[in-house]
Amino acid sequence: MSFFRAAVLTAAVSLFSMPAFALQCGNTSSGFDVWKRDFAQLAKNNGVGQRGLNALAQARYSTKTISADRNQKGVKYALNDFIRIRLGSHDGFASQARKRKAANPKFFAAVEQRYGVPSGILLAIHGMETGFGKFMGSEPVISSITTVAYDCRRSEFFIPHAIAALQMVDRGMLSPSQLGAFHGELGHTQFLPGNAMKYGADGNGDGAVDFYYWPDALASTANFLRAKGWQPGQPYGEGTANFRVLNEWNAATVYQQAIALSAERIDR
Rank of each mutant, 00 (worst) to 15 (best):
I163A: 05
A164E: 10
A164L: 10
A165Q: 09
A165W: 10
L166A: 04
L166P: 13
Q167E: 13
M168I: 02
M168R: 04
M168C: 12
M168H: 07
V169C: 05
D170L: 05
D170C: 10
R171H: 13
R171Q: 15
R171S: 11
G172I: 01
G172Q: 04
M173H: 11
L174R: 09
L174M: 14
S177P: 00
S177R: 11
S177E: 14
Q178W: 06
Q178K: 13
L179F: 13
G180Y: 02
G180A: 05
A181S: 15
F182P: 09
H183L: 14
H183A: 15
G184L: 03
E185N: 05
E185K: 03
G187D: 07
H188S: 01
H188I: 01
T189M: 10
T189E: 02
T189C: 12
Q190I: 02
F191V: 05
G194F: 02
N195W: 09
N195D: 14
M197E: 15
Y199H: 13
G200K: 07
G200T: 06
A201T: 15
G203I: 12
G203Y: 12
N204I: 03
N204Q: 11
N204S: 04
N204P: 14
D206E: 11
G207N: 12
G207S: 12
A208R: 15
A208Y: 05
F211E: 03
Y213Q: 14
Y213E: 10
W214I: 03
P215T: 00
P215F: 00
P215H: 02
D216C: 02
D216R: 05
A217I: 01
L218D: 04
T221R: 05
A222Y: 09
A222L: 02
N223G: 05
N223H: 14
F224E: 06
F224H: 08
L225H: 09
R226P: 12
A227V: 06
K228T: 01
K228P: 08
K228H: 15
K228Q: 15
K228V: 01
K228L: 00
G229T: 03
W230K: 08
Q231G: 01
Q231M: 12
G233C: 06
Q234G: 08
P235R: 01
P235H: 02
G237Q: 15
G237M: 08
G239R: 00
G239E: 06
T240D: 05
A241R: 04
N242Q: 05
N242V: 01
N242M: 00
F243M: 08
R244T: 11
